[in-house]
Design a protein around this nucleic acid. Structure first.
Lengths: 226, 226
DNA sequence: AAGCGGATGTCGGTTGGCCGACAGCGTTAG
DNA sequence: CTAACGCTGTCGGCCAACCGACATCCGCTT
């Protein structure tokens, strides 16, 4: 579980680590995961915002729909990542959707009500939750800055670096990122177009800064990638 | 104070309203405001993030600097608005700056340490703080969506609508927004250029959808503005 | 094994809006 | 009062990157 622990660390608030003991103690037998199939929705806009979730297995797409019905992807989450946290920051009905991207996606749900109850006994928990939401805020600010002030190439490179530090395995100078993300996915996550992603990734490949195929991205040298 | 109350309501978490009694009780004589002069910094990047602030009077610019030294404005705050809240979400050193825009800008500072101490006695406070940060998150998500998926005209119009609902005084169909924001300011807040703001505002004026001069913006009919 | 849907690769045409430049215009400081 | 600086207004050049179109290519499904 070393890897999962690292993921939790990255979340910077080891929320579920704290809560799973709580759950077993306080919530008795309700300590279960939920299973989802590919394309199944965890929640959709206007659903009651009653839980937050941690991804145990599989992938979850977070996004919402524009007026014209077009889908906007704001995040694609994997093992160890938390979503739905706006529910505990006062959101009553979902504004976004969460959708499983793979069969057998396993989620650990956590009821807001129970969480609030726990907060009364556990002062430390309040800080952790505050940090969780605060961390989201900081990340979003970074994303905003990238999107507004950096060109497509820079955004994609920053995305690669993030992914590398987050999921990458280092071997010498090279960093290997196993990923099922399509160019379309990367485009959505970096605010660029599908074609631009393809072009820029191939540019980087030609310069031998990266290599990639359909299941991984390999960064030759993180220091040289810019 | 009706107006100020309305502002607090908009903040959705009546934080300082709750805390001022606390302060007078818990903090005794420390219930003071701080005064700043035009262009004086409240904090700058790398300062210790030890307080959050509410604007009592005047205006405060929040922003940060890009690598090339260019200034990025992320918000311009007036009476009743709160800033520096990342400090209570785990930020240790400021990443942004806060700068008074007018002489005699008055701020009400609130120490994070004291706040944390208060949180232990006041379970309601934890929720409020969570809501405060959560609200920021929601707003930022909206801003992100506007910046990425909407064109400059739409962004500026949305900005006008926001300002109207926030600071506007309705008189019949018309909404009057008193403001000292320059086109440059509006450009920074909407992620556009100064020239684009000037052009679009004048377009809207020509279409008689708005009127404006150097100290106010008048929206003819909120329903028709789009 | 065949076929089909989705992913990748490549090409131009098109354009929103940034930016520099410059000319009034208002405010403000002294 | 006056100078100076910053704000507003307008034009045109320019370009990043979006988008449609189309040709593979891959891999899953039946």
């Amino acid at each position: 579980m070393t890897n999962t622990t690292a993921l939790w660390y990255f979340e910077s608030v080891n929320l579920f680590n704290v809560l799973c003991p709580h759950k077993t103690k306080v919530m008795g037998e309700k300590h279960e995961f939920r299973r989802y199939n590919r394309d199944q929705f965890v929640y959709i806009p206007n659903d009651e915002a009653s839980h937050i979730y941690m991804v145990v297995e599989g992938r979850v797409k977070i996004g919402h729909y524009l007026d014209d019905g077009k889908e906007v992807v704001s995040a694609i989450l994997t093992t160890g990542e938390i979503f739905g946290e706006l529910a505990l920051a006062g959101e009553e009905r979902r504004k976004d959707f969460a959708q499983a991207m793979e069969n057998n996606t396993m989620l650990c749900p956590l009821s807001i009500d129970e969480l609030k109850a726990l907060m009364k006994d556990d002062k430390e928990l309040s800080f952790r939750l505050l940090k969780l939401v605060g961390l989201r805020l900081m990340r979003l600010e970074r994303k905003l800055e990238l999107l507004v002030f950096k060109d497509a190439r820079t955004r994609i490179i920053e995305f690669l670096k993030d992914a590398a530090s987050w999921k990458g395995k280092k071997v010498g100078f090279e960093t290997m990122i196993p990923t099922k993300l399509t160019h379309k996915d990367i485009a959505a996550l970096t605010g660029t177009s599908r074609q631009t992603v393809t072009t820029i990734l191939n540019e980087l490949k030609d310069q031998n800064l990266i290599y990639f195929d359909r299941r991984k991205i390999l960064i030759r040298d993180l220091g040289r990638l810019k």
